[in-house]
Design a protein around this nucleic acid. Structure first.
Lengths: 149, 149
DNA sequence: GAAGATTGATCGATCAATCTTC
DNA sequence: GAAGATTGATCGATCAATCTTC
């Protein structure tokens, strides 16, 4: 279900900060996926649904790819699966026959609310582990890493 | 090549610590994969090669799966690809005809050295971004997260 | 010709089912 | 029957090639 930890178990014991970051991300991801799976969802699906719910109008598949920072063909396949689940419907664009838009169905809107609830719960669980100060420090250090060229 | 960031770009702006951890991991992973790709390697392949190089004798595919914390069938396919690359050779176990072992070839040993070099360089690049104290703090906080049940 | 979407091949991961050997 | 490995189906991601429409 989740991507497995990419490094052997003993990697944490020595000083590999890189492995540690990845291991934590893997663990958080695995938990999130496990929770979402109870609703028949995945993170990939949930992220797409939330994009669609946040937009006022059905989004172009290209727009979805851009928001998700992924390649167009990935969205094509993801929307195939979401359509198979009955959570999304492809609709044609009246102005440009090249573009296809993804519209949430009623089930899709409901699934999205579930996903948001799960996401918020995971985030909250995380926030209970660290003090406010620790969370702030962690955020600062991670942003510093993220900002490096 | 790399797994894409799983959350929309604006996720960092709000306070999602979870997304931030994942984004940092994705970025580090992407860089590592890009470097390894120059040698025709991937992280998955490199990790397997390093396990094999660390062992004195050729490892069982099951042992490789255990070390890598992944499912056996994953290793079957990974070793297929490594064999295709000429980096690994499957050998039979003389004592138990059910088991197959993976043996490094000469190219495999060479590729592993390259991979170790790349890995060390990435780790070093990371260590230059943070002060020793920051790195220590980050490690402590991430370990705290990892330790939560 | 370029833009938008899709298709087909590949990688890396999972799970369930199967095959061989113990 | 159980253990070790493999196969086949699926998910999620990439890239290159193609199709349709602009």
């Amino acid at each position: 279900m989740s991507k497995s930890a990419r490094a052997p178990a003993e990697a944490d014991a020595n000083g590999s900060l890189m492995s540690l970051v990845m291991d934590v991300a893997d663990q958080l991801g695995a938990r999130l996926e496990a929770e979402l799976a109870k609703n028949g969802l995945s993170w990939a699906k949930a992220a797409a649904l939330e994009c669609l719910a946040a937009a006022s109008d059905p989004l172009t598949l290209g727009e979805l790819a851009h928001e998700n920072e992924c390649v167009r063909s990935n969205i094509t396949q993801l929307v195939d699966r979401l359509e198979g689940d009955g959570l999304v419907r492809r609709v044609n664009d009246p102005d440009d026959r090249r573009v296809r838009r993804a519209a949430l169905t009623t089930s899709g809107r409901k699934a999205c609310k579930e996903a948001s609830r799960v996401l918020a719960a995971q985030e909250q669980a995380l926030s209970r582990v660290l003090t406010a100060e620790e969370a702030q420090t962690l955020t600062r250090l991670l942003r510093k890493l993220l900002a490096t060229p």
